[in-house]
């Protein structure tokens, strides 16, 4: 393979994996919330977005020091996430699909509020290492790409270690499988649920910050990203761990290559073709084990 083509292949692969790393960060929050509280939060991406937009406004417009601005943005994301659970999810009827509808409404609300508060223009965010690049063999290795990839791997491995090797992980798995058993074993299921939603806010903020550095920040930028994450979750199964986390990396890499080979217009159809193929070819037994039919 000619060197230029190899360099291009490496470039697309690196970028795809970096995006996949951030998808994995988001995915952990999605599967934790789904498994522990049995909900899907469509406003997940916007939770991160409002935190990032607030940070931007504070440091770029109000002149607040960057670290303080970032912490304020993080606090907002955590607040939005935990309030979504406590004020919205816990108060809606326990009918299937209600959480989807209500959090979709929250997505629209947060988007509108962000537009009102921060305007409609896209804003260039903090660099977060996107301006550090080294060239090896014609491949432009950007530090932010490496950061996102390593973060995705760390979160994936760390999530697995927490879930399988710690008391917290035992409590989470018990709460996810059967709240009554968890309660009878002394686990504070409600408290754990609030903690899970809050952690999901943290993960959303981290991913949203890094995406903002790679793209820009505006009221809508997280929406197509979160859609891809949910698709990866649907492929892997939101009630599992490794399959959706691997699907997060895979779908980003796959989409990058589809765009590179067939053009940008192929990006979205390629993903849906993949979903249809997998649903057709994967053994039914594998699918029937999974209970999140709604996903």
């Amino acid at each position: 393979m000619p060197a230029a083509a190899l360099a291009d292949a490496a470039q697309v692969t690196l970028s795809g994996l970096a995006t996949g790393g951030l998808y994995a960060v988001l995915m952990l929050g999605v599967i934790l919330v789904f498994q522990v509280s049995k909900n899907i939060n469509f406003a997940y991406g916007q939770t991160g977005m409002v935190g990032v937009f607030l940070s931007y406004f504070l440091y770029a417009v109000a002149g607040i020091p960057v670290v303080a601005a970032l912490l304020a943005g993080l606090a907002l994301a955590l607040l939005v996430a935990s309030l979504t659970d406590r004020l919205i999810i816990r108060n809606i009827p326990a009918r299937e699909g209600f959480d989807l509808v209500v959090t979709l409404g929250e997505l629209l609300l947060l988007t509108s509020l962000a537009q009102l508060a921060f305007g409609t223009n896209a804003q260039s965010y903090l660099k977060l290492l996107t301006n550090w690049t080294t060239v090896r063999g014609g491949v432009f290795i950007n530090a932010n790409d490496i950061l996102c990839l390593l973060l995705g791997i760390a979160v994936t491995l760390g999530g697995h270690i927490v879930l399988t090797r710690t008391s917290l992980g035992t409590s989470l798995r018990a709460s996810a499988a059967d709240a009554a058993i968890a309660k009878s074993a002394g686990i504070n299921v409600l408290g754990l649920r609030t903690a899970v939603w809050t952690v999901s806010g943290l993960l959303a903020w981290v991913a949203a910050s890094l995406f903002a550095a790679r793209l820009s920040v505006n009221a809508f930028y997280m929406t197509p990203i979160v859609i891809n994450v949910f698709i990866a979750g649907m492929i892997g199964g939101l009630d599992r761990y490794w399959p959706p986390m691997i699907a997060a990396f895979t779908i980003a890499l796959y989409q990058s290559w589809a765009i590179y080979l067939f053009g940008e217009a192929a990006g979205t159809p390629a993903v849906f073709i993949l979903v249809i193929l997998l649903l057709s070819l994967v053994p039914k037994r594998y699918l029937e084990e999974r209970h999140e039919a709604r996903a």
Binding site: S167, T170, R173
Partner: peptide, 21 residues
């Protein structure tokens, strides 16, 4: 009532959550 997709070991281990962690 058991954690159906967990092992016998992990099902019993859950009972230890009653202890201070």
């Amino acid at each position: 009532r058991l954690l159906e997709r967990e092992t016998v070991f992990d099902n019993v281990l859950v009972g230890c959550e009653r202890l201070p962690q």
